[in-house]
Design a protein around this nucleic acid. Sequence first.
DNA 1: GAATATGATTCATG
DNA 2: CATGAATCATATTC
Length: 439
Amino acid sequence: MDEQPRLMHAHAAVGMSGHPGLSQHITDNTGATDGDGRKQDIGDILHQIMTITDQSLDEAQARKHALNCHRMKPALFNVLCEVKEKTVLSIRGAQEEESPDAQLMRLDNMLLAEGVSGPEKGGGSAAAAAAAAASAGVGADNSAEHSDYRAKLTQIRQIYHTELEKYEQACNEFTTHVMNLLREQSRTRPISPKEIERMVNIIHRKFSSIQMQLKQSTCEAVMILRSRFLDARRKRRNFNKQATEILNEYFYSHLSNPYPSEEAKEELAKKCSITVSQFSAGHYGGIHVSNWFGNKRIRYKKNIGKFQEEANIYAARTAVNAASVSAHGSQANSPSTPNSAGSGGSFNMSNSGDLFMSVQSLNGDSYQSSQVGANVQSQVDTLRHVISQTGGYSDGLAANQMYSPQGINANGGWQDPITPSSVTSPTEGPGSVHSDTSN
DNA sequence: GAATATGATTCATG
DNA sequence: CATGAATCATATTC
């Protein structure tokens, strides 16, 4: 393929030689002699070609037609062909690969992840939402909370798609137009299919760069939208009363082991979100419940006294529930163990109360054993609370005593449930309470 | 507007 | 990876 250019020098020379006399021989050329006439002819043609862009459309059409029919046309065409081939050769190879490919990929991925591009709303929304959620690192929240977000996203998606379509259409139109033009021109000047293809490629590249801009701005819009909503989500929104009550209920009725399983969390989340009204509807997920329990545990432990009242309240409530559920057994109204009242204030204080020892061991068992144990434990917790309430509620000294967090550590409450052996009285002084509750 | 409550996040740990 | 602990940042309260 590289050998061709050799032949062209001659022709090129002819073409070149025509130029100098170009402007002089515009007059008629009909009866010219061989040498002079041809030269003049060529000059004329070339001139016409050169000036064709300056003419009006009709004129140009007419001229074009005239040129096409000219007897010199095939020869000139050949010349052009060869010159072209040469230039094409030099042009070829300058096809740089697209560098913005990576970026485009990123944009595409993001759009896909955001659910902007990709499958349409219908079946795709779930996957899109999942992808979005996954990318956001936020659990699978329900859609209620995000309806606004969804709506805006849909809006963006629509704009994006219409624009994309528009671009696509424009691109196609333009491409076909150019192709037609080139095809038609290929009768006049040499245009290889490959060249047309190249042209189309160029056009496509141009349009794809436009598309990239579109994608970029779409991404931006989505980012802004999301950041806004993410911020909104990040902003603290308190659980409403019902939810906190539900959570507290669970917490205090499982005080000795306030670690809800995944299912329990889910259930709690569901329960909360169901009983919840408007603004935070659907804002509950396992994550929130986990957060809540995490915070609750640590804060409870940090300052048990502060939560005492609350504990009593919820304990009583759940006790009532438990009672109603489990036939009887709510004779807790009779605080048979006054001793336990004091320690009862702090459930963890595991003083020397036999009851608590047994309870603890019970707990220890229940950790490993099946749900039966859990149930029993729950009941035990409840009862404990009731006891503490009925017994220790009146005297404030209980509240004072329960400040000692040693109870938790001592009886291993949450920390080391499996080894109740640590129940043995702690050597640690009660003074450790105020370790750093300064917050 | 400071003080407190509280949900979320981050980081270390086992 | 779930949890505890510390911390952040906002909401609520006074």
